[in-house]
Nucleic acid binder design. Structure first.
Length: 585
RNA sequence: GCGUCCGUAGCUCAGCUGGAUAGAGCGGCGGACUUCGAAUCCGUAGGUCGCAGGUUCGAGUCCUGCCGGACGCGCCA
């Protein structure tokens, strides 16, 4: 859409400069920008960088190129017009042509508007969430899930074949800790008896362990002993482990359902942790790794600006890294991918550098296609979330609070009778607000979550976008009811050229390019930001310009077409960032 | 100590490959509901882009140093 015009103008500029200088120019030497203010037009070409080639001042170049392009008469033909503004060449696009383009394009592509084929035939595996089975999900997981889900949708929108995978960390010392505390203090209570979700019950005993361990020096040793029993497949320990894991996984799945998180394949660490061993031992045979006298196996990465790392303990057991090596190899076998994206917090940067390098040394050529999307931490105003200090923001609690807030809001506004299913709507507003909040910042940055202030339903929020969509939907329903009144009207793009409308048209037209950029940069926040800008413009426009209250049927029909276009972009864009579209709210 | 990342308005965040007067939301102050949904809209105050140099016609953006913060450097995950 917008890209089409950008491409064409780039070409025009390139040819003009080449003719002027008699030398070929590479396409990326043509700098194209979006002007900072509307009076400078829709596209801008700064002339500074051509000063050396053409041996003229930027201002002179602008004039020269302007005359040359003018003579070649590429203008007209719906291309828009050119203007010299000091050292810039500014393009003013033909509003009618772009608007007509947009409306027909949306009409033709329907739900697919914004999709592209850039990643067609590319298989991408996306790993995210990766919970432990010793505690419930918290806000950090929610950010991880939001990014993982959104990214998967964005990549699919670019026609990639995407496989969403989860890895459940269901073994290890931390799991044994909650098991141990439960065995000591739990009195065989089931989640039903305790009136708790399974993951919360297990999590409570993890906290219980830490409390107990404070004045019990032998606690850690006892946990280690239990881990050993687990590895030796002690029936009693295994039975307890299976029971508690089931509770935890069940509870976690419930949270996933509530937040709309889904996976195509789920791996369990308890089933993959042994796989890495064989791979490492083969590497040892090939002398890629080396053994110490105590029997431990190491890799020396000091020539790659990394350290020496242990791959197998002296007792032959696996580590986190070993497990990840095995899981990666297994996954490639299961589903040969062209790219693999690990959505994991940035505190694990080093781990992934090492992992990718080790896989590379082992000769897996797909190691180059592994990517760690290192997203930032979610912190609280007083600092890091700490489970031991009880400062973690629990996912279920947060969601429940948000639903209450939404429900209160609906009652205060007296909207209950208007909405078909208030309970469901509250849920959708709640996780719309949550997902938008989590995806409005760039993934790689740390964010600060203030429980009192962060989640709001006004301003730059998910519900604001939902509200914009609901109002447009409401108006479109009214239009349908009164359709006969406007039956003589027809679409006239030239009626939609007011500056407010033009901004909206440009933003809707840029949407496909934004989807492309979000996929390339693995950054869903580009979409949330763009939808917000477009909604803001539309809200103002909607306030100032009557749509249905017009005598001129042509104008009504045309403005309705624009409303439909905005709605379509909102529907699609919101889906990509996990914010439910609402007809009513 | 070494490594990685980050410092933009009171707070939370934008700022595309360096480009024209650094933008939003929240909060503050002041306005707008007999008209398409006021979860909205409009106006206003608020910035030496951590500090100091450098590169450049041009730096919030690139380089160096310093100050401040986060994370990592386990035979933990």
């Amino acid at each position: 859409m917008m890209d089409k015009y950008k491409r064409m103008w780039r070409k025009i500029l390139k040819e003009a400069i080449e003719k002027e200088s008699n030398a070929p120019l590479s396409p990326d030497e043509i700098i194209l920008e979006i002007p900072p203010r509307p009076e400078f037009g829709d596209l801008a070409f700064p002339m500074f960088s051509y000063a050396k080639i053409l041996k003229k001042s930027p201002k002179e170049i602008a004039v020269t190129l302007f005359k040359r392009i003018k003579r070649s008469e590429v203008e007209g033909k719906s291309m828009g017009r050119l203007q010299v503004t000091g050292p810039y060449l500014n393009v003013y696009l033909d509003r009618t042509a772009v608007t007509a383009d947009l409306l027909t394009s949306i009409e033709e592509s329907k739900e697919d508007y914004g999709n592209n084929n850039n990643l067609s035939g590319i298989r991408i595996m996306v790993e995210f969430s990766c919970p432990n089975t010793n505690k419930p999900l918290h806000l950090g997981h929610l950010r991880n899930d939001a990014i993982g889900m959104s990214l998967s949708r964005i990549l699919k929108a670019c026609s990639a074949e995407v496989l969403r995978v989860n890895l459940i960390n269901d073994r290890g010392i931390h799991i044994c800790k909650s098991m141990l505390a439960y065995r000591k203090f739990g009195q065989n209570t089931s989640p039903e008896q305790a009136g708790l979700k399974g993951d919360h019950l297990v999590g409570d005993y993890y906290i219980r362990f830490n409390d107990w361990a404070k004045d019990e020096p032998g606690a850690e040793a006892e946990a280690r002993k239990m881990l050993k029993s687990w590895e030796e497949a002690d029936p009693e320990v295994r039975e307890l482990w299976e029971k508690m894991n089931k509770w935890a996984v069940h509870g976690i799945n419930e949270t996933y359902r509530k937040t709309g998180v889904e996976f195509d394949r789920v791996y369990f660490e308890s089933k993959t942790y042994l796989l890495g061993r064989d791979v490492v031992l083969k590497g040892l045979e090939k002398k890629i790794f080396y053994g110490e006298e105590d029997g431990s196996v190491w890799v020396d990465l000091s020539s790659f600006d990394l350290d020496k790392k242990v791959l197998l303990r002296s007792d032959g057991t696996s580590l986190y890294l070993t497990q990840d090596i095995g899981t990666a190899v297994q996954r490639y076998k299961d589903w040969p991918f062209d790219r693999m994206i690990y959505v994991v917090a940035n505190e694990q940067r080093y781990h992934f550098k090492v992992l990718f390098k080790v896989l590379d040394l082992l000769g897996y050529n797909w190691a180059f296609n592994l990517h760690h999307l290192a997203y930032g931490m979610v912190n609280l105003p007083e600092g890091k979330m700490k489970s031991r200090e009880g400062t973690v923001v629990d996912a279920d609690d947060l969601l429940a609070d948000l639903e209450d807030l939404a429900s209160k809001e609906i009652r205060e506004k007296g909207r209950e009778s208007e909405i078909d299913n208030p309970g469901d709507t509250c849920k959708k507003i709640a996780f719309g607000a949550l997902n938008y909040y989590l995806l409005q910042a760039s993934p790689y940055r740390d964010i600060i979550f203030n429980p009192q202030e962060s989640i709001s339903f006004s301003g730059n929020t998910g519900p604001y976008l939902q509200y914009t969509g609901a109002r447009i939907s409401s108006m479109l329903r009214k239009f349908e009811q009164r359709k006969m009144e406007f039956k003589h009207g027809s679409l006239h793009p030239e009626l939609l050229t007011a500056s407010d409308e033009w901004e909206i048209v440009k933003q809707a037209s840029s949407f496909p390019g934004i989807v492309t950029a979000a996929a390339e940069e693995l950054n869903p926040s580009l979409i949330s930001g763009h939808l917000y800008e477009m909604s803001k413009n539309y809200s103002r426009y909607y306030h100032d310009y009557p749509v249905l209250h017009n005598k001129d049927s042509n104008l009504v029909v045309s403005r309705i077409a624009l409303a439909k276009a905005v709605r379509r972009v909102l529907q699609h864009g919101l889906r990509l960032i996990g914010v439910p579209f609402l007809e009513k709210m």
